[in-house]
Structures are given as C-alpha cells and as structure tokens.
Computed example of a mutant assay.
Amino acid sequence: MAPKLTEDEINDLLYYARTGDKEEFDILKNELCKRGNVSVVELVRAARDEQSGNGVLHMAAANGHHALLAELCKALSVPSPQNPTMLSILNSQNSAGNTALHWAALNGHLESVKVLLEQGSDPTITNQRGHDAVYEAELNDKKEVVEWVLKEGGEGLEEGVSGETGEGEAETDEEMGEDDNTAEDEQSKKIAEGMKQMGLEEGKGKS
C-alpha cells in the first residue's frame, strides 16, 4: 500500500535528504509513516519527484551523505538484506536513467559509493547515455572512486571505463550541490549542456 504524500511532503523529504539534515528527515519520516500506517520502505519508494524521477537515495548520494544512506539501507533491509524490494529501490533510475550510484560516483563520494555497493546497488546499470556509474566517475576524473570500484566491484566494469567519451557528457560538482572552482571556459559550457540532457541538475542542493 503506497502512502498518500502531498507534493510538499515529497519535496521536504527530498530536500532533507539532499542537505543531509538527518534529524529533520527522521522527524518527517516518522510522522508520515505513523499517519499513513506504512513502513519506511513504502515511504521511501513513494517519495519520488514525479517529473525528474529522483528519490531520496538519489539526493543523499548526490551530496555524499553516506550516514543517511546507510540508515535508509538498514531500514530497507527488512525483512532481509538485499530483498527484491530493497534492490528495486536501490537500483531505481530517474528520468535520465541514473541511479543513486551514478550520482555518488560522478561526484566522487567514495563513502556513499561503498555503502550503495555493499547494500546491493548494481554497478552495471547504464543510463540513457549508455554509461554505468564507474564510467561517469571516470568522465569526472574521480580517480579514487574508479580505482576502488574496479578493485572491489567485480568483473564486467573495465569495459565501461574504456568506452569513448562523448562531447558534454561529464557533470560538475557545482551542478550537483558541491563546491567547484573550475574556470568557466568552453568545456564547462559543453558540460552544462550535457547536464541538462542527463537530468542531473535536479540534484542541486546546499553544500
């Protein structure tokens, strides 16, 4: 049974996940679960932006809030770790085909990447551009993430990293809510254009 959430309630959940305000997120989460007599799993599954397809895991991952991600994954692991419902939420794609793992990886949030992979996120899922999470990390020069995922993530990922890089396909931390001091040049303009196509500008948040 899906809880009936207003647009404002969904926006608030996404906002708190994006800013990493765990206390406010928990207060609202508990209030909504009690009101609708629903589980955290049902709430998280329902709390998605209708237009962008972004969920609370996308927002927390995009901004590196690994502690909140770990707490949510713990709640999702009922009745058992990596159950079908949990995996479907972890690997849900937004309107541009990006999972929470894509966002954590392309922003270089290694601890968030570790949480997501350990909890069952699929690193081989590709977005609408045909890129898996580790390839997005490589495009954004997040070497620490690339090296760790290739070492710990299993087989089948090297091919994604060796793919061709297309124009305007990388994203910047600035667009995803992180600080970025990159000079504004022609390449950054191309990146911004690519951003819009990938649907990643919705991940903006306060750093």
Rank of each mutant, 00 (worst) to 15 (best):
K4G: 05
L5D: 04
E7R: 10
N11G: 12
D12M: 11
Y15M: 12
Y15K: 15
R18S: 15
T19W: 09
G20A: 01
D21G: 01
D21F: 00
D21N: 11
D21A: 01
E24P: 03
F25T: 06
F25E: 05
D26F: 02
D26N: 13
I27K: 14
I27Q: 09
I27T: 08
I27W: 00
K29H: 12
K29S: 14
C33M: 15
R35E: 15
G36L: 09
V38M: 06
S39H: 07
S39W: 09
S39Y: 06
L43P: 01
V44R: 04
V44S: 03
A47T: 05
A47S: 15
R48N: 08
N54P: 00
L57F: 15
L57A: 10
H58D: 14
A60H: 02
A61I: 00
H66G: 00
A67R: 00
L68R: 00
L69T: 05
A70K: 10
E71W: 00
L72C: 01
C73R: 05
K74A: 13
K74D: 13
L76G: 04
Q82D: 06
Q82E: 13
N83F: 05
N83L: 06
P84H: 03
P84L: 03
L90M: 07
L90D: 06
Q93G: 05
A96Y: 07
G97L: 07
N98D: 15
T99A: 08
A100Y: 04
A100K: 01
H102C: 01
H102E: 00
W103V: 03
W103Q: 08
A105E: 02
A105L: 02
N107K: 05
L110W: 03
L110R: 02
V115D: 03
V115I: 15
L117W: 02
E118F: 01
E118W: 02
E118V: 01
Q119A: 12
Q119R: 15
P123D: 03
P123M: 04
N127E: 09
Q128R: 13
Q128I: 06
G130W: 00
G130E: 01
G130M: 00
D132A: 10
A133W: 05
V134S: 05
E136C: 15
E138A: 11
E138Y: 06
N140I: 01
K142T: 01
K143G: 03
K143E: 14
K143D: 15
E144H: 10
E144S: 12
L150I: 09
K151P: 00
K151D: 12
K151G: 02
E152H: 13
E152Q: 13
G153A: 07
G156S: 02
E158H: 11
E159M: 08
G160N: 11
E164N: 09
E164W: 04
T165A: 13
G166L: 15
E167R: 14
E167K: 13
E171H: 08
E171D: 14
T172P: 04
M176G: 14
E178N: 15
D179H: 11
D180S: 12
A183V: 09
A183L: 09
E184V: 14
E184R: 08
Q187L: 10
Q187V: 11
Q187I: 10
K189T: 08
A192C: 06
A192E: 14
E193F: 05
E193Q: 13
M195H: 11
K196N: 11
K196L: 13
E202T: 06
G203R: 04
K204E: 14
K204I: 12
S207K: 15
